[in-house]
Simulated scan of single mutants.
Amino acid sequence: MKKLQLLTNIEESYDELRYKTSWPTKKQVVKSALLVMIASAIIAVIILIMDQVVDRLMHFIYSF
Rank of each mutant, 00 (worst) to 15 (best):
I38W: 13
L17R: 06
T25E: 06
L17W: 07
A39I: 10
S13G: 13
M1W: 14
M1A: 09
D51F: 01
S63W: 02
S40K: 06
A33F: 08
S32P: 15
A41H: 11
K26G: 07
S22R: 08
K27G: 03
E16I: 02
T25W: 07
S22C: 04
V36C: 06
I42F: 14
S13F: 08
I42C: 05
A44E: 04
Y62I: 10
M50D: 08
E11T: 03
S40E: 07
L48K: 02
F64K: 08
V45E: 04
F60D: 10
V36Y: 00
V30G: 00
Q52R: 15
E12H: 01
K26P: 11
K31Q: 15
K3F: 12
V54T: 12
S63M: 15
P24K: 03
K27E: 12
D51L: 10
Y62L: 11
I49N: 03
K31N: 05
L7H: 02
K27C: 02
T25G: 04
M1G: 09
K26L: 15
H59Y: 08
D51A: 15
V29S: 04
A39R: 07
S22K: 08
L7I: 09
A44T: 01
K31P: 00
P24W: 03
A44F: 10
M1D: 03
A44W: 04
I42A: 06
A41C: 04
I46W: 01
V53R: 05
L57V: 10
D55G: 07
V45D: 01
A44Y: 01
H59P: 06
S22E: 14
A33T: 12
P24T: 00
E16G: 10
N9H: 01
L17Q: 08
I47D: 00
V45A: 13
Q5N: 07
I49F: 14
A33S: 04
L4H: 04
L48H: 00
